[in-house]
């Protein structure tokens, strides 16, 4: 087994793929340098992220893949699941080894796994577009905390930029400690530290716009009123809104 260490970035991984071919590394085991990996036996090859090598891998893959399949590579990478690097490498190797287009060969376990994982990430992206609940601050910033299962901030950026073009907003991933900030012109990645817990109602009052509490209340009233008690179905409710997301959902924290 040959260990290939990269810096944890998608570009870094692509460089690693390039160098596996370049140095003819057999049986590579790609490892993220930021992650605890335990003991590493075998030869170690360290990758330094390289723009040209990344670009060449991208170009080759773009020739071989439909745009959709190409974007799935990045999506699955964002899942941050264990062994994702090796899955992506095996997938890419399979794509490159074949003359025909094999991205839809779901009889190949790696192709199927990649497709299924990219759907999971896509679903998480969609959930975040749904579950963001902005709160308006005194200086007219709409902000929201999220904790997505996967690292999807970069995937939701466009959606919010297009939709909320006339308001300043901040969406912050409180687990991964960075966020997106839109200043009416462009979206930027930001990292900052929060002192307050925004679910604390007292703290909320001090920083929020005077109307914020009213609209949260109205939203909760609405959420309660549209429910038809005679059709109660908590299983379905939780299936659609799993409990792990409730923490930042206004309607689930503000009842009465």
């Amino acid at each position: 087994m040959n260990i290939v260490i990269y810096d944890g970035s998608f570009e870094g991984l692509m460089t690693a793929v390039f160098e596996i071919y370049e140095y003819k590394i057999v049986q590579p085991n790609i490892v993220n340098s930021n992650k605890e990996t335990g003991s590493l036996f075998g030869k170690v090859h360290e990758v330094h992220t390289n723009k040209d090598k990344t670009a060449r891998v991208f170009k080759k893959l773009k020739d071989k893949l439909t745009p959709n399949a190409f974007s799935n590579l990045y999506k699955t990478f964002l899942s941050e699941t264990r062994e994702i690097e090796n899955l992506l490498y095996r997938y890419i190797a399979y794509i490159l080894s074949s003359n025909a287009s094999v991205e839809n060969d779901y009889s190949n376990p790696d192709v199927l796994a990649l497709q299924q994982l990219s759907r999971k990430v896509h679903r998480e992206k969609h959930r975040m577009e749904a579950f963001v609940r902005f709160q308006l601050t005194q200086d007219q910033l709409y902000f929201c905390l999220i904790q997505p299962d996967y690292n999807v901030l970069s995937l939701i950026s466009k959606h919010f930029e297009k939709r909320y073009a006339d308001q300043r907003w901040l969406i912050y991933d409180s687990r991964r400690k960075y966020g997106l900030y839109y200043d009416l012109k462009r979206v930027e990645e930001v990292s900052m530290r929060f002192e307050n817990d925004f679910n604390d109602k007292a703290a909320l009052k001090t920083i929020c716009d005077e109307k914020e509490e009213l609209y949260q209340k109205l939203w909760c009233i609405y959420f309660g009123s549209v429910n038809i008690a005679a059709r109660k179905n908590m299983k379905l409710h939780i299936q659609h809104m799993p409990k792990r997301y409730w923490r930042y959902l206004t309607e689930k924290n503000n009842i009465n």
Binding site: A130, N227, K232, H240
Partner: peptide, 15 residues
Amino acid sequence: ICHAYTEDGRCVSLL
């Protein structure tokens, strides 16, 4: 987009 789901499991997308 369904932004929320009521306790009867129906989607809340619109006011």
